[in-house]
């Protein structure tokens, strides 16, 4: 956990660290260190897919914010995860409005289709399933979030098509890289 561990050998990880550092550099103009922490953690999770301990050390070091404080924040919000998770994280809103509008049935459908429970990840690491409490657009309930994409007025019948979209995206990527 010491700052020492920042001397990372893996090239790919080093690049990711640099990306976070660049982000911090650009944010500096807009925010003080404490104020930008939340944004930096979001960026870190975007880059790594989760918050690795070494990355939180980097953030602590560059922003001069104690590691303990960053951990407190990272474990407080359930958006953040300290463990690697699926490529596409599905969040079904279980806030009051979404639930009343039938969000529960969408959730059931998701569990049935993906064959996983809450907080779990599919064996191919493709999808993870979680709930969230209110995404702030209750007028469009029920709402579902897949990574950064928001789907509104959800119904169980829309689940398969949406998941397929991401599956196709992945197969395409794989073909290109081959």
């Amino acid at each position: 956990m010491a700052v020492k561990s920042l001397e990372i050998k893996d090239k790919e990880v080093r690049e990711k660290f640099k990306e976070i550092e660049r982000f911090i550099g650009s944010e500096h103009k807009l925010n003080d260190n404490q104020g930008m922490l939340m944004g930096v953690l979001h960026k870190t999770q975007e880059v790594f897919g989760y918050l690795p301990a070494e990355a939180m050390d980097l953030v602590s070091d560059r922003l001069g914010i104690p590691t303990a404080h960053i951990y407190g924040m990272a474990t407080f919000y359930n958006y953040f995860t300290l463990k690697p998770r699926a490529k596409y994280q599905v969040f079904m809103c279980k806030g009051t409005a979404c639930y009343v509008a039938g969000g529960g049935r969408v959730l059931e459908k998701l569990q049935e289709t993906l064959k996983i429970g809450l907080g779990e990840v599919t064996p191919d690491k493709m999808f993870g399933l979680n709930i969230t409490r209110c995404l702030g657009c209750c007028g469009l309930s029920p709402v579902m979030q897949v990574n950064e994409d928001i789907y509104v007025r959800m119904g169980p019948e829309k689940v398969n098509a949406i998941l397929d979209k991401y599956r196709k995206k992945e197969t395409k990527k794989r073909k290109v890289s081959k």
Binding site: M1, P66, T67, A68, G72, T75, F76
Partner: peptide, 27 residues
């Protein structure tokens, strides 16, 4: 630990029923 002593060894981790006092990363 944080304000009077500026050591920051302890903080609250998690929330709700899971809230606990601990050093960062449950070490």
């Amino acid at each position: 630990c944080q304000q009077d002593q500026d050591v920051w060894a302890l903080s609250f981790l998690e929330r709700g029923m899971g809230t606990r006092i601990s050093p960062a990363g449950d070490i």
